[in-house]
């Protein structure tokens, strides 16, 4: 009897593994293999000044420590993440709460909120380039109307990062709104209704019922937001090319420059390893740290 059960169990397991096999093949070919290759390349010197890559051990990582541009892009990325994540997630939640009700024309409002999400980043960058243009750009026209001095948003080291953050928040918030909206629709109305009968204020309902029940969504949105803050660099190509003097440069764009403009494959691999390790740390923290504090109903 026991034997039969075991063989059944085995069958089920084989069945499962076989079903997973095709995905594993792809995951291995297109995710893990490149990661291992990048890892091994990061120990080589491979640039245009030599014909064949030379093994140099940790030399690339030592160069990294001394590379001023690397530390600049890391700082920028931290500012970019801190500027975009709380704001875009917060605004996304507020927008979701606003449109999560049955009134006429709400479909239109949702569409308008969501619309920046569907435009490609390159198109957005081109539009915002002209919004930020000195003299006749939209923002500076408004400033001019208010008799305020003209600001060269993208041309000055002090404003370029703020300009980027505003644009990305505008694009991202609608995306997060959709997730929150789905989360809100899953919360049973009876909970808030009974709380209302007990005399709870709407702020209380939000703090004690809605927000805790939205935590799984928030975790998911946070993961997306963090990865996006490292992934979104398309706008740099159009708007500033990382300038002025690296004031808007981000890690991924620096990797791109190193790999495809300097053709320094070894160093680019080293930078990629840094990015990978950082993303891994975030993912582990979010899944194993934050996840425990969340109640899944």
């Amino acid at each position: 009897m026991r034997k039969k059960w075991r063989s059944n169990q085995l069958k089920v397991n084989i069945y499962a593994w076989l079903l997973l096999l095709p995905s594993f093949i792809f995951l291995f070919l297109f995710t893990y293999l490149p990661i291992f290759q990048t890892l091994s390349l990061s120990f080589y010197r491979a640039d245009l000044s030599i014909a064949e890559p030379i093994f140099t051990g940790l030399e690339n990582f030592r160069l990294l420590m001394e590379d001023k541009v690397f530390w600049k892009v890391m700082t920028n990325n931290a500012i970019f993440a801190l500027g975009t994540i709380p704001l875009s997630v917060g605004i996304g939640l507020i927008m979701a709460l606003m449109v999560n009700r049955a009134i006429r024309g709400i479909g239109w409002v949702r569409t308008f909120f969501f619309y920046p999400v569907v435009i490609p980043m390159i198109a957005i960058a081109n539009i915002w380039l002209f919004i930020y243009t000195p003299s006749y750009g939209l923002i500076n026209q408004v400033l001019g109307f208010l008799q305020l001095p003209d600001i060269n948003w993208l041309g000055s080291t002090s404003t370029v990062m703020i300009a980027m953050i505003i644009m990305v928040v505008w694009k991202e918030a609608g995306f997060f709104m959709i997730f929150y909206l789905a989360g809100l629709q899953n919360i049973s109305k009876e909970l808030s209704e009974s709380a209302k009968i007990d005399g709870a204020s709407s702020l209380m309902i939000f703090r004690k019922i809605t927000f805790p029940l939205l935590m799984p969504t928030t975790l998911f949105v946070l993961i997306i937001a963090v990865t996006n803050s490292f992934k979104l660099v398309d706008h740099l190509v159009i708007m500033t090319q990382g300038g002025p003097n690296n004031a808007s440069n981000l890690l991924l764009y620096y990797i791109y420059e190193t790999a495809f403009s300097y053709w320094d494959q070894g160093y680019a691999a080293t930078l990629t390893v840094v990015l990978l390790v950082m993303m891994l740390v975030f993912a582990v923290w979010q899944f194993f740290g934050l996840d425990r504090k969340i109640h899944y109903s």
Partner: peptide
């Protein structure tokens, strides 16, 4: 203008007589 002047908007500045 002070600070960095964007390559792509310079022709528009000219066309707009700025």
């Amino acid at each position: 203008p002070q600070d960095v002047i964007d390559w792509a908007t310079v022709p528009s500045d000219f066309i707009e007589e700025k």
